[in-house]
Design a protein around this nucleic acid. Sequence first.
DNA 1: AACCTTTTTAATATTGATTCTCATTTACAG
DNA 2: CTGTAAATGAGAATCAATATTAAAAAGGTT
Lengths: 171, 171
Amino acid sequence: MNKTIVTGPPAAHSRSAVQLLAALEAAGKRNTAQRYAICRALEKHAADHPTVAEIYAAVRESFPMISQATVYNTLQTLKRLGVVIELDIANHDHIHYDLDVTPHVNVVCRHCENIADLHMRTVTSLIDEAAARSGFQIQRTAGLILYGVCPDCRRRRGDGRAAQEGEPQDA
Amino acid sequence: MNKTIVTGPPAAHSRSAVQLLAALEAAGKRNTAQRYAICRALEKHAADHPTVAEIYAAVRESFPMISQATVYNTLQTLKRLGVVIELDIANHDHIHYDLDVTPHVNVVCRHCENIADLHMRTVTSLIDEAAARSGFQIQRTAGLILYGVCPDCRRRRGDGRAAQEGEPQDA
DNA sequence: AACCTTTTTAATATTGATTCTCATTTACAG
DNA sequence: CTGTAAATGAGAATCAATATTAAAAAGGTT
């Protein structure tokens, strides 16, 4: 129940399990069976922008005795290495992971909670302008989050510019 | 300890307490002394992008017996009315509130946790392109969050393109 | 003013994803 | 093989946010 709408070639920018493991090794981390399983699960569910719970469930299929703490720890390590990104989506209870660390936009549907990836040149110019105007040194250009209603959900519920008032207004 | 760097005219786009109260009234909500105090506290701390805890503390100065639940309820009401926006900032434990609901970017400093507002035309074109390319109906254009290091913090800690590796990589 | 209905308040209890603890196990260098 | 620093597992702890509830206040009506 989390099919993601992918715009453009599927998972074209996502890191593979091999790349994730290589990053761990390069950082001097030990290669454990658990980490291997977690990286494979990430790769498999890359298009879903999986949550910790999804990864945990997926890993348990092949590694039933793994603990949640290990999943949390490994994901945090991958995050620190910069090969994975956390998507902090407003009003979602769980953190989502994105294997695409190239500059792009994530569009989140407010109804089905699906997440789409969008690669556009505009992102870079936005970042550049923001940096120039604010004096900030912008760190990450991936995971720029927009909220809306996906095409499927628009069709399902009387399209029109539905859901203006009464909908949660947050970021 | 939360001075916010404002780029451009200070609080130029923020709603005033009067506007917030007017919105409550227009929605048929009752004007209570507590809500009045909360709106005033919001106005006063608008530039700080305050958290619930900050608002709660500020209101208690003039209204010592108010409960947290009332603050939460009122903020949620204001959010539903669309006159206030929640900023869900990665790795911050609390939700921040923004009285500026016009399309703009929020730049967050990773070191001092300050939040700057940036108004740029680029935002609109980014939204438009994202909508066209994804088929999504984009709902909110305020609260587009970027992460980086603010000018002050860059100066303080040997500027250079510091803090690339080892920093949290999330959104 | 007294009545009745609805909204709001506020103290407490609950929730639930994430983090912590620490004893045990494992990976890998020497 | 052995030592040791790192990683894991199991469960408990955390803590912001939400839900629950009874009591109080506001508003409208006659």
